[in-house]
Design a protein around this nucleic acid. Structure first.
Lengths: 232, 232
DNA sequence: GAGGGAAATTGATATGGATCAAGTTGTTGA
DNA sequence: TCAACAACTTGATCCATATCAATTTCCCTC
């Protein structure tokens, strides 16, 4: 690991409050690596040896069953993954691949469990992070079971629009076929869903998104913090 | 709380390893109560004041959006709920209602956070429990996104059969309409799915289930520990 | 700047699952 | 014991979404 990485890591929520000693111990055993796009970092079913953290780039978590595949989520800088498996010393439930050139920290799961006991603040941070992830998945299930695919798309766009600063023009950060999979639909259907949002002021051309009639879109999407606010 | 409740609580995984002092502190502030069937224990969106644990009976976690409702899961003795919300001091993402007469412990969330810091073993148990719940939800999402409703039903039956001792005759522990909702389908569709499993040796009449050709059913269900094993 | 390959779109069609409308069975409580 | 109500089932139909096939667009590489 380069020394220049350390401040960025230290400033992550997971490590911000812990003691210098504990942090040093975690860093000692950690690897930081650059991966090319489309690199499989971990495979579903394999034992979990490292807690991973995305420093830069993006990573797709996905799962397979019976020849089928689905994207579970897309992670960006600051996100941790495989925390639950690392804590339980259990096999990974999801695979992970980079979507672009990405920089990843890998901390031995054993070290994480170790430092968890030594450092109250780290323990608190871990449990907060885990609870945060849990709630994120619950929100995802609620979206899947309670909404149609068009409603999910509409809410995704609203969330993205907010994240991108609230303007009415912004960029789609991922390929459409991956977005389709995350939202639980086929690429073909996403295309049609996009067209179906035209009357609500949504225009998507390539990666460019324009959202004019925000209120109309909200009227369709009916966003609620209990599904759509990642904090909360 | 009755003194006679204490041993049962102490023997739960969450409290088994902790010190007597810490346990006493938790118990001091806790309530144990019997609730009638169909009682709303908590409401989605409300602040979370208590960690709940089912001692006896069963509880349905469910969620609503836009006039629609879905069952997220059914909990039985030993299960905790609203742990993540309690830890994050965040609003409940799900509502809960009893399905039958049930006995529930309620521990003030504040006490849980307090004792988390005092007692390493409790902290470890909390984090294990939370990671367990997280992985449970992930498995649920995988089932929802990767399987058809008939495949979900088939896997549900295989899991239940195993849980009930492995015989080829056992009872459905919940109403079909709730099972339908948990599995992400309508009651009408569950009826048809049940009929569609006849050729695979499944016969369900009322609450009675008979599973003859296990191998055929497994051939259809293709169970995997990465979705269907609650431990793992 | 042309060629090739992947991604995206479009149209046609199939299908899983939802909805609606009766029935039927089952349960409960007076 | 029976009335009343809820749960379940069944059939008919509808709708959302998947699938299949054919282009078209985009992007990357040479």
């Amino acid at each position: 690991m380069r020394d220049s990485d350390i401040p960025a890591i230290r400033s992550l929520e997971l490590f911000r409050e812990m003691s210098d000693d504990s942090f040093a111990e975690l860093v000692r055993g950690a690897y930081v690596q650059n991966f090319p796009p489309n690199m499989e970092l971990i495979v579903e079913g394999d034992p979990c040896d490292f807690l991973h953290i995305v420093i830069d780039g993006s990573v797709e978590l996905f799962a397979n069953w019976n020849e089928r595949e689905t994207a579970m989520t897309i992670l960006r800088e600051g996100a941790t993954f495989i925390l639950a498996a690392a804590i339980r010393d259990a096999p990974n439930l999801m695979s992970a691949r980079t979507l672009e050139r990405s920089r990843i920290i890998m901390i031995p799961a054993e070290d994480v469990r170790q430092v968890f006991f030594q450092d109250h603040d780290f323990a608190r941070a871990i449990v907060q992070e885990l609870a945060y992830c849990y709630r994120g998945v619950i929100k995802g299930v609620k979206g899947l079971k309670l909404r149609t695919s068009i409603e999910r798309l509409a809410n995704y766009l609203l969330k993205l629009q907010k994240k991108m600063g609230g303007g009415n023009s912004f960029e789609l950060p991922i390929e459409k076929r991956r977005l389709a999979s995350v939202l639980g639909m086929t690429p073909e259907n996403l295309s049609r869903a996009i067209k179906a949002l035209r009357p609500y002021g949504v225009l998507i051309e390539g990666q460019n998104i324009e959202v004019t009639k925000l209120d109309d879109l909200k009227g369709l999407a009916k966003p609620t913090p209990l599904i759509d606010d990642p904090r909360s």
